[in-house]
Simulated scan of single mutants.
Amino acid sequence: MDKLLTAIVDDHPIVIEGLKTMLQNEENVQIVGGFGDGESILFYMKSNQVDLILLDVTLPDINGMDLCQMIKKESLSTVILILSNRTERSIIMQTIQNGASGYLLKNSSIDELRNCIAEVAKGNICFSKEVIDIISRPSKNELQGRPRLTRREKQILILIAEGKTSQTIANDLFLSPLTVDTHRKNLIQKFEVKNMAELIKVAYEQFIL
């Protein structure tokens, strides 16, 4: 059986070395390298074949969700298996939507990793047991669905996320500060959150930002 030419993409060298050690004797895997960021794996793929990528979501330059799309654009046949500590259901679902074939948490057993590598190599989607539990339980925000925002509310939300004050936003959009504050209150009500920090967090989780 041909071995899968496998790259590990993680910003922790210890994780890369650990995975290399765990997988060095697997019959179906040949590690071709470890990469600490998204740019380096994309650059490597321009002149080298990679069959399988074990990918972390949290990287210093590109988030793993966006990187999935970039990898697939570079090589549609490359299979992506996410190996991450991130447990948000929205992140898990977004990686799959963007082209990943599976998702495991970093505390998964070697047997789970081995099984998922075999499954994704066959063209199937595979999750570790813990990830299956997470995706079978929608979060409160997802059950409610994404709030419907007006174009102006979306505009103001983006500027709030950039850390701008009501006065600055008012100046930028030629509004009165009072109007901006009213939009802020409406956003807090629509998202059913207590403050701006929570508003921004939920907006990111729902990929509105």
Rank of each mutant, 00 (worst) to 15 (best):
I117R: 08
Q97E: 15
T87W: 05
L105T: 05
C116Q: 03
K106A: 04
E198K: 14
E119Y: 07
E112I: 00
R146K: 15
Q155P: 05
G99D: 00
V193T: 05
S90F: 11
E198N: 12
I125S: 07
I80A: 02
Q189V: 07
K185Y: 09
S101K: 13
R184Q: 12
V120D: 01
L83R: 03
I80T: 01
F127P: 11
N85F: 06
S109M: 02
T87V: 12
P147L: 00
I117A: 07
I80P: 01
T182N: 14
V202F: 01
L113W: 09
I200Y: 06
R114D: 14
A203M: 03
N186I: 08
R137G: 06
L159C: 05
I117M: 08
D111Q: 13
E153D: 12
L199R: 03
L83P: 02
M93Y: 12
I169Y: 02
G145T: 05
N85E: 09
L113V: 09
T182E: 13
N171G: 06
I82L: 13
R137I: 10
I110D: 12
N171M: 09
I169H: 04
I188H: 06
K190I: 03
A197G: 07
V193H: 03
K185G: 05
Q144L: 15
R114P: 06
V193N: 03
E119R: 13
Q155W: 11
R137N: 14
S128N: 09
K201Y: 15
L173E: 11
L159I: 05
M93E: 15
T95F: 06
K194V: 02
S108Q: 03
S101A: 11
I160H: 00
R89T: 13
N98C: 10
T87E: 14
A203E: 04
L104W: 09
I80S: 02
K140F: 14
S84N: 03
L143A: 07
V180H: 14
I117G: 05
I156V: 15
L113G: 04
K72S: 08
R151F: 08
R148C: 07
R137D: 13
K194D: 04
I96D: 09
L81H: 01
G99T: 00
R89K: 15
F191I: 00
L81M: 01
A118P: 04
K140V: 12
T78K: 08
L76N: 10
